[in-house]
Design a protein around this nucleic acid. Structure first.
Lengths: 253, 253
DNA sequence: CGGCTTTTTGAACCCCATCAATATCCGTGG
DNA sequence: CCACGGATATTGATGGGGTTCAAAAAGCCG
């Protein structure tokens, strides 16, 4: 900081939206070159965030929306008695911080699961730009809608499905999201620990572990710690009671 | 229609946003007179909807956002195996149809619980107006955020709370929303049947009934069918594990 | 190799679903 | 007005899915 000797500036690592491989699923989707440049101009690239570190906390005034550039995050909502619920996991290209829209204050604490990087978008600047950029408004709508639909499906999952069915639904959801990012939908590493996944699914860690074991015994999946291989997606779909991804023309979110 | 004899036209019953008692909690909040008139101009007043009738169905293309003018609605999400989850109840002034934002298609089926009226807002017109109306964009953000926060709290409820705690949280939530509309927060009629409430809370109808009975025995509430009286909000708050409404300066949503 | 965390497995208990039956409300028509 | 039937709501008994407590196994890091 106070040294005169120059080292590599983190700003030099800046990658513009136009170069970003995530632009199709992220905020820039549908923008033309000029609009893209304008969006680029108001994006702040935060330094790397290590696992367990917090991006923003419940109660913080909302200043930015964040897009995951690399890595993964969890959003945690707490009751005033200490109960905690993970409301979502975020993969690359996904938008974090929408929980602050209600009263310009965040209600979820958002924490990195892996070593991650994000794009921070000043909410006031974004607001101004969106006023004159129809494509940006549309994409914002779509991303907001994706979040809402995601939450609604989780409500269905928690309210109506059994533990094993919830896990199946989750695995297929992650599978689809990874596929969309160019990764194998059949074999992947989960970004979160059992502890977090259990919480997300509304189960005890022990129960989740049993659900995994049962699926392995049934030949539906193979696992090694966070590594998961889907062996029988058809049966998983039946379990999950939700859209069976065939060749996938679905918006997965 | 083909008659020459004029009867009272439903359009004559039109009430503008500026006259509407709900304008403070609904879309018009924060708009000036001219903006209000512009918003008014694109609002379509649908004929009365009777209990059990559908406003829009899952799969319908999204054309309107709807605001509840009077009455109440439920939004139902279905799995492809027939499982159904009520994702939300909507009271006067609340916005319905945000689930269509993701891909311009509704994913929830929305059904009237009582004899109800709604304002339908053409989504394309709203989009155009919001482009040049900062206040409208802000209020849209806030209402969207309220929906997201509401969903997140329900995730916490379904994932972490016991049946009785969920019911307490629900009663307090309804209480707050009614209070904001000028009704008593301590005594009110629930707009939904036990069946729907049970589904919303992820419980069997019988279990819900038992939770009610338990609360009555404990002196927390009194009930007569859909009529509910809150007797001990303090204990209810403890049960619910969520913001205890004192004199209420909270955004309730 | 030792200490830590993470994950898995085992056993007992509890919350809640399910099945079954009764009670209450409400609209309809005699 | 009451009788009747259907929907709605409550209560009881039983069983299962999941939590909890406990402990072992497996991976990770120094």
């Amino acid at each position: 900081m106070s040294q005169s000797r120059k080292v590599i500036n983190i700003r030099d690592l800046k990658v513009s939206c136009s170069d970003c491989s995530l632009s199709d699923i992220c905020l820039p989707h549908g923008l033309n070159h000029q609009e893209l440049d304008e969006l680029d101009a108001l994006i702040l690239h935060k330094p790397r965030i290590e696992p367990g570190e917090t991006l923003f906390r419940s109660g913080d005034p909302m200043r930015y929306l964040y897009a995951v550039r690399s890595g993964a995050f969890k959003a945690v909502l707490s009751s005033n008695e200490g109960a905690e619920q993970i409301t979502g996991f975020f993969l690359s290209g996904e938008l974090m911080g929408l929980d602050g829209f209600g009263d310009d204050t965040h209600h979820c604490t958002t924490i990195a699961l892996e070593s991650s990087t994000v794009c921070a978008i000043d909410i006031d600047e974004l607001e101004k730009l969106s006023a004159r950029t129809e494509g940006l408004r549309r994409q914002m709508r779509h991303l907001i809608g994706a979040e809402i639909n995601h939450d609604h499906r989780n409500l269905l999952s928690l309210g109506q499905l059994k533990g094993e069915e919830r896990l199946a639904a989750f695995l297929l959801n992650i599978s689809q999201r990874l596929k969309r990012r160019g990764f194998s939908p059949y074999e992947f590493n989960l970004p979160m620990a059992r502890h977090d996944l259990a919480n997300y699914l509304g189960l005890a860690v022990e129960t989740l572990s049993r659900m995994f074991s049962r699926m392995i015994d049934a030949g539906l999946i193979e696992t090694n710690r966070r590594h998961v291989k889907l062996l029988d997606t058809k049966k998983l779909c039946n379990l999950a009671q939700y859209d069976c991804p065939r060749e996938s023309h679905h918006a997965s979110s």
